[in-house]
Design a protein around this nucleic acid. Structure first.
Length: 833
DNA sequence: CTAGGGTTAG
């Protein structure tokens, strides 16, 4: 028996071996419909039949043939039917059929043209014409034409026709105007299942799934019995809502005696269970299904792939092939995506080959998935080849290829492609802006964001997350406030990732208060959100508050990870909390089962070194379970310098030289850790460090924002338009600070030049240029905010201290380590810069 | 001759 009745007792599982009928319960749909045409299975048979129809002069059958051929929708069948149409005497009936054929084949525009032609030839549309034409309008979302048809319906007094009303509901819903559909529905004196179903489906497909489900139950209460179509709509609405409880309620209805289901309902159920977090239920239903069709396999596959369960997906694919079900484009789409996610090039290649051999490539989404797969498997050249071979490239194709270049850190190629794009969408902009941020090109990222604004494109949470990172890195507080405002004004959904990015942004701009406010406003906080808040405290050297936050996080039942400990230890170090830092370091393994990684050792060396415990630091280095890298030795070296221990400093410098050729990839590892925690600014910083290592040296660069404009200075760079003023100001600064007793610390210049030259080089350090420009460009009393990409040198540090005293200005410098608040000759870091 | 349905890339 084809139709299955679900057990009323077990509503949560469909216990009967579900063998859905092959044919849906209504048999009037699709080509094989009426008359002799029922037996036509392909064009050849239709042609033979046509010859017979012509010979016997059965004109009414020509209309049926027309509808049949049009519905096949191939170029050949359409050409054929056109000839048949033109060689026959036309009638209203024939026009109706042909319109219906085109609508059925999805050729709505043709259907609309035919309607116009029919009216022009003097035929009056009837109660068949309208549903057919409206269905075509719905397919191509031809809103204006549909509304005109509605007008004609009213004029002709056909408003009360049930079929027309139902078609109108469907049409309005498909055009995204479900409210109009609801109006038609409300006015109906008589409604049938299709009326209800059309409205339910309209809500379900147009982002009002909750309304769809409540309408379903309203319908049941009104005593109208839902059929398979209704159930499919209601179930897919639950899937959209990811609401298992509602899904269960519909399932309970379906489980009632007498209710029958078909394949489509079972497929919808499988999909719903998969999407509502009950994959086991879905799998059981799937396994119980004796005759699985292609869509059911595809449903399981695509859901597994979406949820990152590639292994389960592969098992389904294998079962499907073993049972002799031939994969189609949808199947291959999932298979290719799976190989992309697995980074499995050989499987990806096999899929690509299968697609080519079986002629499944002619679908944009398949080619795009292949491009994505090759870029993710590190074969950008192959991706480019597929891209070049595509006859119609969609925005997604371009976007995938650009994302591939970004992944390879090749922003130049990405940028070149971006500029060639015939049209862009939000994702294109997001990919490009994100790519620039990833490559530390923060100003370019913000500039591109401004271009995007001027083109009238509204950003989303992805855009703003990137912009927030760039903004935070540049320390551009005004822009940060603007971004915050932008989020509220445009009601951008602030998820955990964006929320975290905002906290980080304000923290890096030195506005701790707003950062913490934004943090407290976050509805949900995960470990990386807490990490960011703790990091904010570390940035300003507030170790005590950082520890409080960490304890609060533990109290709320969060499990700390390695990343949060980096921030906690850093905060202890910046706050000079040696004992607490030691405690947290040991508690990592003892209390939380996290083995300290090399970065944690780096933090500890920093912590001990800062406190002058140099031999303790050295002991810790020697006891490390892994080889110390140059970050560890670097921290130690800095400590030796601060505490003027030249012997140990030389030792550390030797070690660093030994490691010069180090390509151990610890940076990549660190970058990945940060990336997985969503800390994009840190990812960018690590990438910068990698560059620093790969090239000889990253030039020191400082930026300052004045009147919303970012001014960037690199040491010795004289390209700034105000350079004359700046040079004068530098002279004045040098003499006034010199008078105040500043003696340049020439050990900060690592070049073999004479002392005069060293002094000159120091005076050219980028932060001094930025401070000089800040003095010129702002009024007395305004704090000067400077952001530096590298760690400040000790000479600039003492210079800045004196500047704050002599000029009576608050100076804030954020280097790549922390904030330094210079006030009245003192610095918030207590001279451990 | 009538209307409504399940899987689909960045």
């Amino acid at each position: 028996m084809a139709v299955t009745s679900l057990s009323p007792l077990v509503t949560t599982t469909i216990t009967t071996s579900v063998s859905p009928q092959k044919q849906p319960e209504r048999t009037t749909k699709h080509p094989s419909r009426t008359g002799s045409l029922r037996f036509c299975r392909n064009m050849n048979e239709a042609k033979q039949l046509h010859a017979q129809i012509i010979k016997n002069n059965h004109h009414s059958n020509v209309a049926k043939l027309i509808a049949f051929c049009a519905e096949i929708g191939t170029p050949e069948s359409l050409e054929y039917v056109k000839k048949a149409f033109e060689s026959s005497a036309v009638s209203l009936y024939m026009f109706n059929s042909w319109i219906r054929g085109h609508s059925g084949a999805g050729l709505g525009d043709e259907a609309i043209l035919l309607y116009a032609k029919m009216v022009a030839e003097g035929f009056t549309p009837d109660h068949y014409t309208f549903p057919f034409t409206l269905s075509g309008c719905a397919k191509v979302e031809a809103f204006l034409e549909g509304v005109q048809l509605h007008g004609s319906v009213v004029k002709m007094g056909l408003e009360g026709d049930l079929f027309i009303q139902n078609s109108l509901i469907h049409f309005y819903a498909e055009c995204g105007e479900v409210d109009y559909g609801k109006k038609v529905f409300d006015k109906m004196s008589e409604r049938n299942v299709v009326s209800w179903t059309s409205l339910i489906c309209g809500y379900a497909r147009r982002d009002w799934p909750r309304e769809a489900v409540s309408l379903f139950f309203e319908m049941v209460e009104a005593g109208i019995e839902p059929n398979s179509v209704t159930m499919v709509c209601a179930i897919s609405a639950c899937a959209k809502l990811r609401d298992l409880d509602l899904g269960e309620r519909i399932c309970a209805y379906i489980g009632q005696p007498g209710v029958t289901v078909n394949t489509l309902v079972v497929n919808a159920l499988v999909d719903m269970f998969m999407k509502c977090g009950a994959p086991d239920r879905a799998k059981r239903l799937f396994d119980e299904c004796v005759e699985k069709n292609l869509v059911m396999y595809n449903t399981m596959l695509s859901n597994y792939v979406c949820q990152g369960k590639e292994r389960d997906a592969l098992a389904i694919l294998v079962e499907m092939l073993r049972r002799g079900t031939k994969p189609d484009r949808v199947t291959m789409l999932s298979a290719v995506s799976a190989s992309a996610q697995l980074g499995d090039l050989s499987f990806g290649r096999q899929c690509h080959g299968y697609i080519l051999r079986n002629g499944l490539e002619g679908w944009d989404s398949v080619s795009n998935a292949i491009i994505d797969m090759y870029t993710k498997c590190g074969k950008q050249e192959l991706a480019c080849m597929v891209f070049d071979g595509m006859s119609t490239k969609t925005v997604v194709s371009w976007n995938s290829l650009i994302a591939g270049f970004v992944r390879n850190s090749d922003v130049e190629s990405a940028w070149a492609l971006f500029n060639q794009m015939p049209e862009t969408d939000l994702v294109s902009w997001n990919t490009m802006i994100g790519g620039l941020v990833q490559e530390s090109l923060f100003e370019d990222a913000i500039e591109l964001f401004r271009v995007m604004q001027s083109e009238g494109i509204t950003a989303d949470k992805v855009t703003i997350s990137s912009v927030a990172s760039a903004c935070g890195y540049l320390g551009a507080l005004d822009l940060a406030k603007w971004v915050y405002h932008y989020i509220e004004k445009n009601e951008i959904h602030c998820d955990m990732r964006l929320g975290t990015a905002v906290v980080d942004m304000f923290a890096r701009c030195g506005d701790t208060e707003t950062a913490m406010l934004a943090f407290s406003r976050m509805k949900e906080k995960d470990v990386s959100a807490w990490t960011t808040a703790i990091g904010a405290m570390a940035l300003e050297g507030n170790g005590t508050r950082a520890i409080e936050l960490f304890n609060e996080m533990l109290k709320q039942g969060m499990n700390p990870d390695g990343v949060v400990f980096v921030e906690v230890l850093t905060a202890c170090s910046h706050g000079g909390l040696v004992e607490q830092g030691m405690h947290f370091f040991w508690s990592m393994k003892e209390e939380h089962g996290i083995s300290p990684q090399i970065v944690h050792y780096g933090c500890m060396i920093d912590l001990l070194g800062r406190a002058g415990l140099l031999s303790e630091a050295l002991d810790l280095i020697k006891g490390m379970p892994m080889e110390p890298n140059n970050v560890v030795w670097g921290a130690f070296l800095a400590a030796c310098r601060t505490h003027k221990n030249d012997k140990m400093a030389a030792y550390a410098a030797d070690k660093i030289t030994e490691l010069a050729g180090d390509r151990s990839g610890t940076h990549v590892l660190l970058s990945n850790i940060y990336a997985s925690a969503g800390k994009w600014t840190d990812v960018a910083r690590v990438r910068l460090q990698m560059k620093e290592k790969g090239l000889k040296k990253v030039p020191g660069s400082s930026s300052i924002v004045i009147n919303g404009v970012i001014h960037e200075f690199t040491s010795g760079d004289e390209s700034h338009p105000e350079m004359n003023h700046i040079v004068l100001m530098l002279h004045e600064m040098n003499s006034r600070i010199g008078d105040a007793g500043h003696v340049p610390d020439l050990t900060n210049v690592l070049l073999d030049v004479d002392d005069r030259e060293k002094e000159f080089l120091l005076s050219q350090h980028s932060e001094r240029l930025a401070i000089a420009f800040g003095l010129i460009g702002t009024s007395q009393g305004t704090p000067i905010h400077v952001v530096k990409n590298l760690r400040m040198c000790s000479d600039c540090h003492s210079f800045a201290k004196l500047m704050s005293k002599v000029y009576g200005r608050n100076i804030v410098i954020r280097d790549n380590n922390r904030f330094h608040y210079f006030l009245q000759g003192f610095c918030s870091c207590n001279d451990y810069w």
